[in-house]
Simulated assay, not measured.
Amino acid sequence: MSADGAWKISINTPMGPQEANANITTSGDTFTGEISSALLGSQTIQGQVAGDTLTWTSDITSPMPLTLEFEAKVEGDKMSGSVKLGPFGAGALNGVRA
């Protein structure tokens, strides 16, 4: 299933749910795109595609410097997975095509 397109994503964090918008373009076993949220700002992302699963990391500076590690499975118009939140454990990730 292709992950190409616009997504509305929700990430459960210790600071409560964080909403983000993402645009993804796949090319073989890689993808590029952009993700933006009110708290984390906007940044370019790139990662790996393995079947229906996307993985990538994002270095953020707000609300504090952290490296977030994403893993998301795409099933039709839904996305689910988790985000490793540095020393704060992991949070669930859910998304739908926008």
Rank of each mutant, 00 (worst) to 15 (best):
residue 54 L to F: 04
residue 8 K to T: 15
residue 33 G to Q: 07
residue 66 L to Q: 01
residue 56 W to V: 01
residue 49 V to P: 01
residue 68 L to E: 00
residue 1 M to E: 14
residue 34 E to N: 11
residue 18 Q to H: 07
residue 88 F to E: 01
residue 44 T to D: 15
residue 6 A to P: 09
residue 57 T to A: 11
residue 74 V to Y: 05
residue 51 G to P: 05
residue 75 E to K: 09
residue 43 Q to K: 11
residue 6 A to S: 15
residue 8 K to V: 14
residue 55 T to D: 02
residue 43 Q to C: 06
residue 26 T to H: 11
residue 16 G to V: 07
residue 65 P to D: 04
residue 6 A to I: 11
residue 4 D to Y: 09
residue 83 V to H: 03
residue 81 G to F: 02
residue 82 S to E: 14
residue 34 E to C: 11
residue 28 G to L: 04
residue 87 P to G: 00
residue 56 W to F: 06
residue 92 A to T: 13
residue 89 G to Q: 00
residue 97 R to M: 08
residue 61 T to C: 04
residue 38 A to L: 13
residue 36 S to L: 05
residue 22 A to V: 04
residue 10 S to Y: 08
residue 86 G to C: 00
residue 88 F to A: 04
residue 33 G to P: 01
residue 44 T to G: 14
residue 48 Q to R: 13
residue 79 M to Y: 11
residue 42 S to M: 05
residue 71 E to F: 05
residue 40 L to I: 05
residue 42 S to F: 07
residue 80 S to P: 08
residue 32 T to V: 09
residue 17 P to F: 05
residue 87 P to Q: 04
residue 11 I to D: 04
residue 77 D to L: 08
residue 23 N to F: 13
residue 70 F to Y: 15
residue 86 G to V: 02
residue 12 N to G: 11
residue 87 P to I: 02
residue 42 S to N: 11
residue 93 L to I: 05
residue 96 V to C: 06
residue 52 D to E: 12
residue 16 G to D: 02
residue 10 S to I: 13
residue 84 K to V: 07
residue 9 I to R: 00
residue 79 M to N: 13
residue 90 A to K: 14
residue 46 Q to T: 15
residue 91 G to H: 01
residue 51 G to Q: 03
residue 17 P to L: 10
residue 81 G to N: 03
residue 98 A to M: 10
residue 35 I to N: 01
residue 62 S to D: 14
residue 43 Q to H: 10
residue 12 N to S: 13
residue 83 V to S: 00
residue 42 S to C: 05
residue 41 G to L: 07
residue 27 S to P: 06
residue 79 M to A: 15
residue 63 P to R: 10
residue 61 T to I: 09
residue 35 I to W: 00
residue 12 N to C: 04
residue 74 V to M: 10
residue 46 Q to S: 15
residue 8 K to N: 15
residue 34 E to Y: 07
residue 29 D to W: 05
residue 47 G to R: 04
residue 91 G to I: 10
residue 71 E to K: 15
residue 92 A to L: 14
residue 61 T to R: 13
residue 83 V to N: 03
residue 21 N to W: 10
